[in-house]
């Protein structure tokens, strides 16, 4: 079922990130193995998006180490992350409405034949890819504008799969989707896991997290607030970690004196 390899595909060790006077991330730890879906949850402003952007190379980290397959790597720009095999699907999908599905899948890496776009081969590969991922869309030759929100999301995810990435980061893939469309996207996440990809899933929706994630990493105010195994954790426990019900005057005081003592 869940295949866990020896070294994690990606490991964050004590990662910190500051924006001016704001300490967005403090000593964050995260491990993810191939064939594993890790849900990253937390309240607004908990640092989920910042963390994802550090992994994707949008914001380089200030402190800490990022390990890729057990070796420390420097991710300074989006290109570095892509070269390692990290694909990110952002919340705003970054698709062109006026271009058809095939064109969007291959945007920026079109296949060419004697210098001319090879539409036939691109269409064939697009259909192959969508079939492998069991993505059903009406036709690969209609513009993105004609697709539903869920279908656009699946196209965006499929697009990230073209480079055969080892790690796929999905930023709120089910936000603003209907019931059935959400189910389609969750099915797709499971298929990514079956194919041995590591998946980081950011979500506000506990039902989705419980449905597909193997582990849940909770962030609160830019710090780790627990990593749970989904199977043996109740939804209430996760929610209390997110909202900070475990966070009280005593733990805050302990944290303060601990920092002062450093």
């Amino acid at each position: 079922m869940v295949h866990v390899s020896a070294a994690p595909v990606l490991a964050l060790r004590g990662v910190s990130k500051r924006f001016g006077a704001v300490q967005a991330l403090t000593d964050v730890e995260l491990e993810i193995h191939s064939g594993e879906v890790v849900a990253l949850v937390g309240d607004n402003g908990a640092g989920k998006s910042t963390l994802v952007k550090t992994i994707a190379g949008v914001h380089p980290i200030d402190d800490g180490v990022i390990e890729w397959n057990g070796k420390p790597v420097a991710i300074g720009k989006p290109h570095d992350a892509q070269n390692l095999g990290i694909a990110t699907v952002y919340q705003d999908l970054a698709l062109c409405d006026n271009i058809d599905v095939v064109g969007n899948l291959f945007l920026g890496r079109e296949l060419k034949r004697r210098g001319v776009l090879d539409e036939v081969e691109m269409e064939r590969r697009a259909r192959e890819l969508l079939t492998t991922l069991s993505i059903r869309i009406p036709s690969v030759r209609i513009p993105i504008a004609s697709l539903s929100g869920g279908q656009r999301q699946t196209v965006a995810i499929a697009r990230s799969m073209l480079g055969e990435p080892k790690l796929v980061i999905l930023d709120e893939p089910t936000a603003a989707l209907g019931v059935e469309q959400t189910a389609q996207v969750l099915d797709l996440v499971e298929r990514l896991r079956e194919r041995g990809h590591a998946v980081i899933l950011i979500s506000h929706n506990m039902a989705d997290v419980k449905a597909v994630a193997d582990k849940v990493a909770v962030l609160r105010l830019g710090r780790n607030n627990g990593v749970f195994n989904v199977k043996d954790t109740s939804q209430e426990e996760i929610i209390s970690a997110i909202t900070g019900a475990t966070d009280n005057a005593v733990t805050r005081r302990a944290a303060r004196t601990g920092e002062a003592g450093k």
């Binding site: 952002y90 970054a94 698709l95 062109c96 409405d97 006026n98 271009i99 920026g108 060419k112 776009l117």
Partner: peptide, 20 residues
């Protein structure tokens, strides 16, 4: 051509084109 495709992409979404 890729060049033409890029022009259409920019007309559709500049951000998507940049990320591509």
């Amino acid at each position: 051509t890729s060049f033409g495709r890029s022009i259409f992409a920019l007309g559709g979404s500049v951000e998507a084109s940049r990320r591509a």
